[in-house]
């Protein structure tokens, strides 16, 4: 199977799903009672004025025509106008994207590095890891908002080392980093626990397999066995799992941005929901869904290129 064919095989269902999702979103949007014309005129619109506005906004076209026009607008970069902020959705997204992207990428890297290291540590030393195991169990049982509150109470209130939320007013790199450190930890630690559990389980399972004993018998050092034989074996499933973390990352970003009062995309979505700002919410939903599913698909494709057996795994 060529790489191109593989990408197509993975990408096609994702794109189909996203298209279906956009159709569903638009259908719900259109079929909700009331439209922009009614909302604008309130109780004061006569039938003629309503009709004029509907014609002007192309609300009287058929569903298919409106859907296609909406898709074309999305593709052109016109994502509608936010009812809550009164500015184009695109402006809002472009303004807030860097913060959310930094937050999720930093915590993704931290979670992957931390998770795999802790997993190796757990698998390597069997007895001295009771405390680490307990910490992982607590992290798994702690919702991320609670972890955020605990981190604020510890490192911003009890020992005032770091700011409790918001973004830095200074543009200095260090000030920005200080503000984003606690949110990144709150987002990454639960994923560290999940990845560490998985890495530990698959490492222990792989270490008991005969090829490891053979490698040891040939005189390869334990570190060498781990690096050259065991880690490549578990790389593909780990990669696929870390791709699935994208979904957690999206949910986590919303929660963490709310807890730490960060003006990112997650808190924007939450504001849109509470204000029932439909154009903003729909655009953000599409954006989040596309980002998540493409990230997952990308990770799965990479995992398949590493381990070709994943193709026919059903």
């Amino acid at each position: 199977m060529t790489f191109f064919k593989l990408v197509l095989l993975r990408l096609l269902p994702t794109l189909l799903f996203l298209w279906f999702f956009s159709l569903l979103l638009f259908a719900l949007f259109v079929w909700l009672p009331g439209d922009v014309a009614e909302a604008t005129f309130g109780t004061q619109g006569d039938a003629q004025a309503l009709q004029r506005m509907r014609t002007a906004l192309a609300l009287d076209k058929t569903f298919v025509q409106r859907y296609l026009a909406w898709l074309a607008d999305l593709a052109k970069g016109d994502w509608g106008e936010s009812a809550l902020y009164g500015v184009p959705v695109r402006t809002l997204v472009v303004e807030r994207l860097p913060l959310s992207l930094t937050l999720s990428l930093a915590s993704y890297l931290l979670a992957t590095a931390g998770g795999i290291s802790v997993g190796i540590l757990l698998a390597a030393r069997r007895r001295t890891t009771v405390l680490l195991d307990l910490a992982l169990n607590i992290l798994l049982a702690l919702p991320s908002f609670l972890l955020g509150i605990v981190l604020i109470l510890l490192f911003a209130v009890r020992w005032p080392l770091l700011p409790s939320g918001g973004i830095a007013e200074q543009a200095a790199w260090s000030a920005q980093a200080r503000h984003i450190l606690l949110p990144v930890l709150a987002l990454a630690l639960p994923q560290v626990a999940i990845l560490a559990r998985f890495a530990h389980a698959s490492l222990t399972e792989t270490l008991s397999r005969p090829f490891v004993a053979t490698a040891r018998a040939k005189g390869i050092s334990p570190q060498g066995v781990l690096l050259r034989h065991v880690l490549p074996t578990i790389a593909a499933p780990l990669l696929a799992l870390s791709g699935l973390q994208a979904a957690f990352l999206v949910s986590g970003t919303v929660v963490v941005e709310h807890v730490f009062a960060l003006p990112g995309l997650g808190s924007l979505f939450l504001n849109a929901t509470h204000a029932r700002d439909l154009p903003l919410a729909l655009a953000l939903a599409l954006l989040f869904a596309t980002a998540t599913l493409l990230a997952t698909t990308f990770a799965e494709t990479l995992a398949t290129t590493i381990d070709a057996r994943r193709v026919d795994k059903n």
């Binding site: 999206v250 949910s251 849109a272 929901t273 700002d277 939903a285």
Partner: peptide
């Protein structure tokens, strides 16, 4: 792979 929070936010909106 679909985030659960996204569904909750959408239904709430």
């Amino acid at each position: 792979a679909f985030p659960a929070l996204l569904t909750a936010l959408l239904v709430a909106t």
